[in-house]
Every structure is written in structure tokens, then in C-alpha cells.
Nucleic acid binder design. Structure first.
Lengths: 138, 138
DNA sequence: TATTGTTATACTCTATAACTATA
DNA sequence: TATAGTTATAGAGTATAACAATA
């Protein structure tokens, strides 16, 4: 039979588990007309009214060059509003349509995250998430 | 201060940890002239001489349409050899240059994987990998 | 000088459709 | 009919370089 030489590599497993979760999240969000990165930006704006797009970029590690068209799409769809805070920055807040969408968005994320942990015994889920946090925010 | 509403989401953490690891792996492999997917295919061929590219695709979940140019690049660089096994399939094996590269490749992967787990206490590393395996090969 | 926001561009990985040749 | 391999193409995410306007 064929041998999978990668199946014990945590890096490979992280990649496969993450890629699978991202694909499922994308499918969940498609009916809302959102891609995963757009949805995560909306969650950040909701939690931080008047945040600027450069601050979001630093938080989510999205380069400014990539934030620009992403935010422009959300503004074009009137999901967010931009208010000048000084001559070069704009504070971002959810527009009415964005607040409406946010409720569905939050539910989809909640179900998605539960689905990921679902395969682990309930007693190990918190430990798993904590280890991931250790790896990320070391 | 700004709030990160995603920091407790295992799906988001998986994505960030995985993306960071992939970026570091890509940097490690660049001096060898390989991208992560190319390197993983070489590891699979080394472990399974005469495997076909469709079998590799099923193992690594890479679509046939994407396997074709990937394998062609490796064959053009004479890292692998293709031997017909029937009228439509080719068995893939490492060519001499591929075997030479494989030694360095294996070392880079070993260091990479160790680096990922490095931030976890040694006593938790096996449990973490096992949980990832549970999530992947459920 | 440094930062914010922007445009243009390219790369990697992935996804779909259509096709040929073989089993 | 199903499978192996291929080509063309498009999408999403990311990366770099260059630039204007503002701090």
C-alpha cells in the first residue's frame, strides 16, 4: 500500500486541517456574499468602531496594499462607513446593512468554530485552543 | 485599546499558525529551488517509488489539473523520472538529482517541524500532534 | 522622515471546464 | 463508462514596488 510520509508532521497536519476549515468557512459565507477575509474584517470593525484600516491590517496581518481594495469593496456595498479622523486616516464603522449582516455572520462563525472542535472529545477542546494560542501569540 | 475578536476562535488560530508555518517553510525551501507543494510531492515519491501522479493527488488532495504542471516542472528539472506502467499512467521515482536533493529536503522538514512544536512544553507536543491527527483523519 | 492609503503587478495554491487517450 | 493526464482559465490570498498626501 501507499505510505503517507507527511501524516506525522504537525506542520502538514496544521495545513490540511486549516485548509479544510477555510474551505468550509468559505462555503458558509458564500450565501452572505462574503469571503473569509472580508468577514473577519467586519468582525474586527464591529468590535472596534472607528478603527482605521491600517490598524486592522496590523491586527490581521493583511498588507496595506491588500486592505485597500478589500475595504473599498465593503464600502461600495454600503456594509461599512468611512469617517475621516484626520487628513489621511478614516475611522471605519458598520453601516446599517453591515450591522444586519453581522448578526448572521456571528452565527455562522459560531457554528463554524463549534464544528471544528466537534471531532475532539469535549474535555480536550479548551486545551487544544490554548495550545494554538501558545503557538500563535507566543 | 483595540480588541481582537478572533483570538479565541480555533479556526482563526489554526489559519494563522498554519499560514505562518507555511511562510517559514517556503523560505527554508527557496534555497533548494522548491516550493512547499513540490517538496511534499518529492517526499511522497521517495516513500512510494513508482507511485502515479493521480495517486499522489488523492493522497495530498491536489487536483489532477494542478498535478500535471507540478510534475512536469519536477521532470523538466530531472528531479524525477517517469516510467510508463500502462498506456495512460506513469510510475514516478526520484532521479539521481532528486535523491541528492531529498537528503537536504528531509533535513529541512525535520528542522521545520521541530521549530513549530518548539513553543509548546515538551510534555504536550505529542498530545498536540495527536489532536491534529484526530481532526484530520477523523 | 514616517505613516496612510492607493495602484499596479506578480506569485502560489486552488478550482472548474473541456479535452484526448486508454482501461 | 470510468480513469489518467493535459490545457486553459479564473479566483483568492499574499507580496513587492512605487507613489501621493498628510503627520
Amino acid at each position: 500500500m501507499t505510505i503517507d510520509p507527511l501524516k506525522d508532521f504537525p506542520g502538514y497536519l496544521l495545513h490540511r486541517v486549516s485548509a479544510d476549515a477555510m474551505t468550509r468557512l468559505a462555503r458558509r459565507l458564500a450565501p452572505l456574499g462574503l469571503r473569509p477575509t472580508e468577514a473577519s474584517v467586519l468582525l474586527v470593525i464591529e468590535a472596534n468602531p472607528n478603527i482605521t484600516q491600517s490598524e486592522i491590517g496590523r491586527m490581521l496581518d493583511i498588507a496595506g496594499a491588500n486592505m485597500a481594495p478589500l475595504v473599498a469593496r465593503l464600502a461600495d456595498r454600503e456594509l461599512i462607513e468611512r469617517e475621516p479622523v484626520d487628513g489621511r486616516s478614516h475611522g471605519l464603522t458598520l453601516a446599517p446593512a453591515g450591522r444586519e449582516l453581522f448578526v448572521q455572520l456571528r452565527n455562522q462563525f459560531k457554528e463554524h468554530e463549534a464544528e471544528i472542535l466537534d471531532k475532539l472529545p469535549a474535555s480536550r477542546r479548551a486545551a487544544f485552543t490554548k495550545m494554538l494560542r501558545t503557538l500563535w501569540y507566543d
